[in-house]
Design a protein around this nucleic acid. Sequence first.
DNA 1: AAATCGCCCAACCGCCAGGGT
DNA 2: CACCCTGGCGGTTGGGCGATT
Length: 284
Amino acid sequence: MVRPPCCDKEGVKKGPWTPEEDITLVSYIQEHGPGNWRAVPAKTGLQRCSKSCRLRWTNYLRPGIKRGNFTDQEEKLIIHLQALLGNRWAAIASYLPERTDNDIKNYWNTHLKKKLRQDGSVDCPVGPTGQRSASKGQWEKRLQTDINLAKQALSEALSFDPKSDKLVSNTTTTTTTTTTTSSNGENCNRTPTSPFFALTTDNISKLLEQWNKGSNSNSGSSSTETESSGSGSNSIMSPQPINSVGLGLDSCGPELSMLAEWLLDESVDQDQGQFCDMSLDFGV
DNA sequence: AAATCGCCCAACCGCCAGGGT
DNA sequence: CACCCTGGCGGTTGGGCGATT
């Protein structure tokens, strides 16, 4: 059972991914679905290790990823979830389906840590950060005992301007219908200045188009036909809603809407049942 | 206008857990 | 039961880019 090392130092390419590699990877996943990462480099001919492929997919290419500035709501949610969960970025990310754990981690390290420090808060307010040694079971128990505190904190965090009560709907639709952000990227109604532009399947298609056209760089920057629901280029991607493609997006864990609903539902105050279920669903 | 500094983010690395043999 | 393999996660790094001097 001699197996080649995961990252064969000679044959494995490192560094930034090229559009060609992205396209190769996406088209492979489109065909076979995510998973079996070990087979990906072999099947696609990519000079990347399986890990690298997986990371590229989950952090960048996966449909439904929102890029750009974090909203206040997201920020608050992250802060409080971090307080609650510690640096369990994957768990935190499960409540922000549009964000990757890497993004959240980066955002925390670059913005929030600093911000909290400036605000006079400790940089890791509460939470199990220092409890790494505890087993998961213990942690979960601890978590459940802290549920009331957490809820209070989260309620505070989400007691934002009623005008922006879109918190629920925004993120919800993104998971359930994935907002077809892919089609034009404008559906993300926040911070229009930011490049809200995840490399969705559609974008990849366009990427491929442009790439095929060669160095026709002028046509880049999402030309006029962003409207085309079928994305024009059906070469790789089918125009089906990306959430239904079954590319793993459905495994995003509990949706934010669920959390928000729970938060906003006063009646749950006395009854922790729902959240208990959720807490067991963290996917930790 | 050029040089320097600081920030951001994509990607890498190492460790760990779960599943399979 | 023990070992091996794969996938997942969190921490860290380094290149690119914009802001500042």
